[in-house]
């Protein structure tokens, strides 16, 4: 990750009013915090996803394409965009990540179903965070 991207992230955090943000990538871990000490690093998230991957080889993760607050329903709607176990088509929005006035859609990676949600409704998630276990259909 380049310093420029970190500056963008910091700006986005300020825009979204996010106080803390932790990003885990294949070769890095980044913790950003605003107006307070950075949190202690832990291995819980990485360990958790590895365990999930071991239990079912066909399940793939859906990761966050941006940072934001996880919404499983559009703010105008009661019904979730895609419930657990509900069939969805590739590209369909299955969740939204809200930053301030805007929302980035999280697209289904393939035709399939959501097996499990890995983040709570309303949780602040960072770029690359695992949001769902997803079972693609052939």
């Amino acid at each position: 990750m380049r310093p420029g991207e970190m500056a963008d992230l910091a700006a986005a955090m300020i825009a979204a009013g996010i106080a803390r943000l932790e990003l885990i990538g294949p070769d890095f871990r980044l913790a950003l915090a605003r107006g307070e000490a950075a949190p202690e690093e832990t291995d819980e998230t990485a360990g958790g996803t590895e365990a999930a991957a071991e239990t079912d080889a066909d399940v793939i993760p859906v990761t966050a394409p941006a940072l934001g607050m996880l919404l499983r329903a559009h703010p105008l709607h009661e019904r979730p965009l895609a419930g657990d176990g509900e069939a969805v088509v590739a590209g369909q929005a299955i969740a939204l990540l809200r930053i301030g006035a805007l929302m980035t859609p999280v697209a289904a990676p393939a035709n399939g179903v959501i097996v499990a949600a890995l983040a709570e409704e309303g949780a602040l998630v960072g770029y690359g965070d695992r949001l769902f276990d997803f079972l693609p259909h052939d």
């Binding site: 986005a12 825009a15 930053i99 301030g100 805007l102």
Partner: peptide
């Protein structure tokens, strides 16, 4: 203010995607 907020966050997203 609402319009400015939409514009600001949209510009941020645009900048990030261009990066």
């Amino acid at each position: 203010g609402w319009v400015a907020e939409v514009r600001r966050v949209a510009d941020l997203m645009r900048a990030r995607r261009a990066a």
